[in-house]
Nucleic acid binder design. Sequence first.
DNA 1: AGGGAACGTTGGACCGCCCAACATTTTTGC
DNA 2: GCAAAAATGTTGGGCGGTCCAACGTTCCCT
Lengths: 152, 152
Amino acid sequence: MAETPYVPARIRALPSWLLGRAAARGHRLVAEALAGEGMRMMHHAVLSAVAELGPVSQADLGRSLSIDPKDMVTIVNDLVAEELVTRAPDPRDRRKNAVTISPAGTRTLRRTQKLGDAANAELTAALTPAERDQLIDLLTRIATPGLDDRCS
Amino acid sequence: MAETPYVPARIRALPSWLLGRAAARGHRLVAEALAGEGMRMMHHAVLSAVAELGPVSQADLGRSLSIDPKDMVTIVNDLVAEELVTRAPDPRDRRKNAVTISPAGTRTLRRTQKLGDAANAELTAALTPAERDQLIDLLTRIATPGLDDRCS
DNA sequence: AGGGAACGTTGGACCGCCCAACATTTTTGC
DNA sequence: GCAAAAATGTTGGGCGGTCCAACGTTCCCT
């Protein structure tokens, strides 16, 4: 320990800086955990959202997860190629694509959820369960600027 | 139906996801605040670190802020071009570049620090001061992979 | 019927992160 | 002393994530 990795106080005290560092570590941990299944963070999030929301359009998925429509196309393309979801035109609105999870997707989701949860457990290993819950609460209130909390 | 920005529960409860969203918002707020001064987040961080650590080599800066040496070269180049810092060879170790803040850099730093603090205040506007301090504490313990274990 | 809006899609740009390589210089070992 | 090993600064490129502009298709509202 010749030179301690000393983070300047002014920077260390900035929530934006800490959020960036913590998010980078979280992203890295989750990405490494999901790499074994050939899944990336966004793919897992979309797959999980599809499973929870049922047949849903890509636009709704993008709004729910704050993902750009452009990236959503790529993600759904990958998921369709792996036969984890199906993309069929919505008969009631032929603009929309009804994205539905497949049985294989459900099975994969079960595994990736375990891996994701494990990675998040490692991410918050230094926290007590109560602290973890409070962190989630604080982050939720920070992540959404003025959005009213609904549908809990 | 515009009231559909519904975040799935399984995703919303993941610290990694919340960290990503909160970090994205924090980065956006700070970037917008600093855009008026022609500064970016990393430039401001490096400038602040130089001001606090005094004459310091680029390698130490990179280790302190977890910035790749490659990117550090670009950042210091920009700061030197704007005459906010000076880069002179260290007489005691001619491999190193002693980076020092300039009077103009000090003046700019004062403004960017105000802007950065204001952006962080807006970022944590939904939190009480006590909650803000606790968030900083929790994030600090999360962002550090382990005070002794420094790998990957 | 027509105009505005939404949807999916394509293309591209920017930024942050990481790895490999090299010349110069310091430090270490013999 | 001197050669080998390590460190520093620098350059180059690649990868992944985010975002914006545009376009054709389709729906909704007046």
